[in-house]
C-alpha cells in the first residue's frame, strides 16, 4: 500500500512517499506563484522517483500553510500534528519539537505516542524565522550555507537591539561600518533568532528531549545558539529535518489508510 505526505510550506513543497517497504521518495520543489500546479508537479516527480503510478496511491495527507492547494483531494492536517507524528517515529525520546521554517517558527509539546499536548506559533513577524536569517546573511554578503559556520568563529558577544528584520538589516550594516568582525555579527544574529524561538517555545514549557526540525536545523550556528539559550546539552536533530512535516503527513496517511 502506497501513501503520500505533502508539506506545502512558505518557500518549498516537500513530498514523501511511503509503503510497507519503507520510504521510496523524498522530493522538494520550490514553487512558482501557482501553488496548485507546483504541488501537482511535486507529487508527480515524487511518484516518478518512487516508481509508483498515481492510481496505486491509496491516500494523500497534506500539511503546511499552502495545504489547501494540494492535489488529489487530500486529507488535511495541521503542522503541529504532522511535526509530532514525524519526529516521534524517528526520535521517540522527543517531548518538545521546535520547527523553524522559512516564514514560521513553532514550538510543540508532544506525548510519547506523538500526540500534541500544546503548541505556540509565530507567523506574524519575520523575526525568528528562516526569512530573517536569509536577510541577515544577505546584508553580511555571506552565503546562507556558510553563515552558521562563520558564527561559530565569533570571539565576542555583540548585542543586537533590533527585533524587526527591516531594522536589523540597518543594524547589521552599522556594525559592518564599525568594523565589527563578520563572525561576531553572525553570532549576534544567531543569538537573537534563537532567543526569539526560545521565548516562544517556553510558552508551552520545555520538556526533554528537545528536537529541532525545519530548514534552519541545517545551520550549525543556530543549533549552538539555541542550545546556549535553552541551556541544553543535547538537541536532537533528525536526518532531513526539513522533511519531518511531510513524513508526519505520510505516516498519518498510512494510519488512515490501514484503518
Amino acid at each position: 500500500m502506497v501513501v503520500a505526505g505533502m508539506d506545502l510550506g512558505a518557500k518549498a513543497i516537500k513530498v514523501v512517499i511511503l509503503s510497507e517497504k519503507g520510504v521510496s521518495a523524498k522530493v522538494k520543489l520550490f514553487p512558482d506563484l501557482d501553488m496548485a500546479q507546483s504541488a501537482r508537479k511535486a507529487l508527480e516527480e515524487a511518484l516518478v522517483q518512487s516508481g509508483t503510478e498515481l492510481h496505486e496511491l491509496k491516500r494523500i495527507v497534506a500539511t503546511g500553510t499552502g495545504r489547501s492547494a494540494a492535489p488529489g483531494k487530500p486529507a488535511l492536517v495541521t503542522e503541529p500534528l504532522a511535526d509530532a507524528k514525524g519526529i516521534i517515529a524517528l526520535l521517540p525520546l522527543t517531548r518538545t519539537v521546535i520547527d523553524v521554517g522559512a516564514e514560521e517558527g513553532r514550538g510543540v509539546k508532544i506525548t510519547p505516542q506523538g500526540e500534541v499536548v500544546d503548541f505556540a506559533v509565530n507567523e506574524k513577524c519575520a523575526a525568528g524565522s528562516g526569512a530573517f536569517m536569509e536577510s541577515m546573511a544577505r546584508s553580511l554578503e555571506l552565503k546562507i550555507e556558510d553563515f552558521g559556520e562563520i558564527s561559530l568563529k565569533a570571539t565576542q558577544a555583540v548585542p543586537m537591539n533590533a527585533q524587526c528584520t527591516v531594522f536589523a538589516e540597518s543594524e547589521v550594516v552599522s556594525l559592518i561600518h564599525a568594523n565589527t568582525p563578520k563572525s561576531d555579527i553572525s553570532r549576534a544574529v544567531h543569538d537573537a533568532t534563537a532567543s526569539r524561538i526560545a521565548a516562544m517555545t517556553r510558552r508551552v514549557g520545555i520538556e526533554k528531549e528537545v528536537a529541532l526540525i525545519g530548514g534552519v536545523a541545517y545551520n550549525p550556528g543556530f543549533v549552538e545558539a539555541l542550545k546556549r539559550t535553552l541551556s541544553l546539552e543535547t538537541l536532537l536533530i533528525p536526518d532531513h529535518p526539513d522533511f519531518i512535516g511531510a513524513l508526519g503527513a505520510a505516516l498519518i496517511a498510512y494510519e488512515q489508510a490501514v484503518n
Partner: peptide
C-alpha cells in the same frame, strides 16, 4: 519498517 531508508534515500530538489 515505514521509516526504513529515511537516512539513506537521497532528496530530489526541483524548481517549478
Amino acid at each position: 519498517q515505514l521509516i526504513s531508508q529515511w537516512e539513506t534515500l537521497p532528496v530530489h530538489v526541483f524548481t517549478a
